[in-house]
């Protein structure tokens, strides 16, 4: 189902307008001191959790903004950050 994603600039829009940008893993690590294991963890590994996760989206067919939302992966709907607190 094309669920809705709330773009901070454009408001709720159909999910197909967006590109998924992965789970939020924080800023880029320093490449010089990065072990292969830590590198892999940052680049490839994911929690793939059942439930709410914080994640990145890009409004590809819209304003071109990267932003984060919280989404419940079991229901595949955006949830407010309050719901996330309740979930954890």
């Amino acid at each position: 189902m094309a669920f809705l994603i709330t773009c901070p600039l454009c408001g709720p829009r159909d999910a197909y307008e967006f590109r998924f940008g992965g789970e939020d893993k924080g800023p880029r690590p320093d490449p010089e001191t990065l072990s292969p294991e830590a590198w892999c963890d940052y680049v490839h590994m994911a929690d793939s959790r059942f439930g709410v996760q914080k994640e990145w989206w890009y409004h590809r067919r819209g304003c071109g903004t990267w932003f984060t939302i919280y989404r419940d992966t079991v229901k595949n709907i955006e949830v407010s950050s309050n719901d996330r607190e309740a979930d954890q």
Binding site: R19, G21, G26, P27, R28, W56, Y58, G64, T65, W66
Partner: peptide, 12 residues
């Protein structure tokens, strides 16, 4: 390309 550059600078 736009989303690539913006993605990799999103924290900055």
């Amino acid at each position: 390309t736009s989303e690539w550059i913006r993605y990799h600078t999103r924290f900055d």
